[in-house]
């Protein structure tokens, strides 16, 4: 990073922050729209179970159901643990 870039980036570009946040939330909401109605409750249930062992927050868990073809759907569960809680 050049010195010039440093000064440019130190002046906060809030438009970039907005774009990144929107990309994440829009992708999340689209996935949710295209998934079965029970998925949010399933996600909450899984969160509760994990919380019995590790203290995590809702944004650390992602559940999605991806339809591969007519016969197969894959339930994907992603949980990120913070470093100090492993």
């Amino acid at each position: 990073m050049s010195l010039l870039d440093y000064f440019r980036s130190s002046k906060k570009n809030t438009a970039n922050t907005a774009k990144e946040r929107l990309q994440i939330i829009v992708a999340h909401e689209r996935r949710k729209r295209n998934s079965p109605d029970y998925l949010p409750q399933l996600e909450r249930d899984i969160l509760e179970v994990i919380r019995k062992y590790v203290d995590i927050s809702p944004e650390q868990i992602a559940v999605s159901l991806e339809k591969r073809d007519d016969e197969l759907s894959v339930l994907e569960l992603n949980v990120t643990f913070p470093d100090d809680k492993r």
């Binding site: 906060k12 809030t14 438009a15 907005a18 774009k19 929107l22 990309q23 829009v26």
Partner: peptide, 17 residues
Amino acid sequence: RVEKGEMLSVDDVKEIL
């Protein structure tokens, strides 16, 4: 405001939606 980085650009919104 877009040039100053204070507002989402046309391309940003197009890309997101």
